[in-house]
């Protein structure tokens, strides 16, 4: 981990002003911001850990908890909201048994909501590991969840 973080910080020439981009890149590499990573950033950049925590908790893009293998992001922008997103949120929460913003215990799913993805014509939009699913409704969400469950079962089998 140390090398990863060193090379990211080197990219910004060790400039403290680039704390936010540094954390962005670290999260991209590690999927979230583990405590050890923050400690490393703190010591290499020579910024107090309290300050890093302030920044890491202020910006929504950062996660201090590990995130699931399947990352589901549902757009909660205004256009998607008026097209029925609240019902879909309820549905996903019920099916996965987690609340918006949480990760399932087995680290399979993370369910997050985001603000406008800029593709409102396709709203409601769900992005699963970077892939867009447009014009979502409850029925389509059910189908998508079933498909994901099946795939995750398969990958479990593959592992054992």
């Amino acid at each position: 981990m140390e090398n990863t973080i060193k090379s990211i910080i080197d990219k910004y020439e060790g400039d403290k002003g680039f704390l936010v981009p540094v954390l962005q890149d670290v999260q991209k590499e590690l999927n979230y911001l583990p405590r050890e990573a923050l400690d490393l950033v703190s010591s290499i950049l020579e910024v107090p850990i309290s300050y890093i925590f302030e920044v890491a908790t202020f910006y929504k893009a950062f996660s201090l908890d590990p995130r699931g293998r399947i990352q589901m992001q549902l757009c909660k922008g205004t256009a998607c909201h008026v097209r029925g997103v609240p019902l879909i949120i309820d549905h996903v929460e019920r099916e996965l048994n987690i609340k918006e913003g949480e990760t399932t215990e087995n680290l399979e799913y993370t369910f997050e909501t985001v603000n406008c993805l800029g593709a409102c014509a396709l709203g409601p939009i769900m992005v699963v590991n970077g892939e867009y699913h447009g014009q979502m409704n409850i029925a389509k969400t059910s189908r998508l969840l079933k498909k994901l469950a099946k795939e995750s079962e398969k990958s479990e089998e593959g592992k054992s």
Binding site: K16, G17, F18, L19, V20, P21, Q24, E54, V55, F58, Y59, K60, A61, F62, N115
Partner: peptide
């Protein structure tokens, strides 16, 4: 690149964000 906070669109918050602060 912003960090995903609406308030950072506000001018003085935006400056703070560029300076690497919250």
């Amino acid at each position: 690149r912003g960090g995903g906070a609406f308030v950072c669109g506000e001018s003085s918050a935006l400056f703070a964000s560029i300076e690497g602060r919250s």
